[in-house]
Each structure stands twice: as structure tokens, then as C-alpha cells.
């Protein structure tokens, strides 16, 4: 394998992994939030079942077991740190990328082009980060915006 092929593949992968990281973290956070919400709903349902009258001992113990299992799951999800996820370290479509690079391995011009694409991806994601950093209002929710504006003039939004 020629040096250029390897370094092209490397810079492409590196740029894609890095630029996807930010979004992946957010997605993972949202996913865990959703799962926690679903489990909390399950728990509420179970508690309701438990409080029903006319439940025999067998069913009651079963519900209790399910309750503790759900509680454990919620705890695990809450302690999970999306930043530690190994998913962030890999690019999910690397096989496709590998095929592309291999098909172009005798064509230094195209490889150089791929390298340029990698550089573009890096710069574009950096540009997006800067835009976000200099315009913090862009990704705030409406609620957050109202709250911060109120704080700015010395008021507080009622809870």
C-alpha cells in the first residue's frame, strides 16, 4: 500500500471522526434522556398497578421485582457518561470509505482530492464551532432565551 493512500485514508477518517463527535455526543445525550423518560413512565405505571386493590400476593411480588429492575436500569442510564462512549471513536461507514480509497489507489490526483476534502471537513466543522461560540443564542431553546434575558435585567422567570 502506498504511503499516499494510507495518509489519505488516515486524514479522511480523522476529520470525519472529529467532526462527527460533537453531534454524536448530543445525540447520545438525547437518546439517554428519552430512554430515561420511557423508563420513568414504566415505573409510574407499575406503581399504579401496585396500588390497585384486590391484587394477590403473587402478582404483587412480581410487580415489586419489575419495579426494582426498572429503578436499577434508570440508575445505570443516569450514571452513563456519553463522553466515554467508544462509539465516538469510530466512523460508522468506514468500509465504504475503504472501498473508495482502494479503488483510487493508483490515482494520486484523486487521492490528493480526497485529502483536500478531509481538510475541508475539518475547517468547516471548526467554522461551525466558532459560529456557535460567537452566537450563543443560536442553539438555545426559547425558554432558555427568555430566562437569560430576564436575568440580564435583574428579573427572574417565575417557576
Amino acid at each position: 500500500m502506498s504511503e499516499l493512500t494510507l495518509s489519505t485514508y488516515k486524514s479522511l477518517l480523522r476529520s470525519l471522526v472529529r467532526s462527527a463527535k460533537h453531534n454524536k455526543i448530543q445525540q447520545l445525550q438525547q437518546d439517554t434522556k428519552k430512554q430515561i423518560a420511557l423508563l420513568t413512565y414504566n415505573r409510574i405505571q407499575l406503581v399504579r398497578q401496585q396500588q390497585e386493590k384486590g391484587l394477590d400476593a403473587m402478582a404483587r411480588s412480581k410487580v415489586l421485582k419489575q419495579l426494582s429492575a426498572v429503578g436499577k436500569k434508570i440508575e445505570i442510564l443516569k450514571t452513563k457518561d456519553p463522553l466515554k462512549s467508544k462509539e465516538l471513536l469510530f466512523y460508522s461507514h468506514s468500509k465504504h470509505l475503504k472501498d473508495i480509497v482502494l479503488s483510487l489507489k493508483d490515482d494520486p490526483r484523486s487521492l490528493q482530492h480526497l485529502k483536500d476534502i478531509a481538510a475541508f471537513v475539518v475547517n468547516q466543522s471548526e467554522y461551525e464551532q466558532l459560529i456557535e461560540r460567537y452566537n450563543p443564542g443560536l442553539k438555545m431553546s426559547q425558554e432558555e432565551k427568555v430566562q437569560k434575558t430576564a436575568n440580564k435585567v435583574g428579573l427572574q422567570v417565575p417557576e
Binding site: M1, L6, Y9, K10, L13, V17, R18, L88, F90, V101
Partner: peptide, 13 residues
């Protein structure tokens, strides 16, 4: 060799 490169990128990250 390409997979090794991929693994090394992951370790870098």
C-alpha cells in the same frame, strides 16, 4: 494496513 490506520485514529481520539 488500512484497518490498522483506522484503529490508530481511534486510539488517537
Amino acid at each position: 494496513s488500512l484497518d490498522t490506520v483506522e484503529l490508530l485514529v481511534s486510539i488517537e481520539e
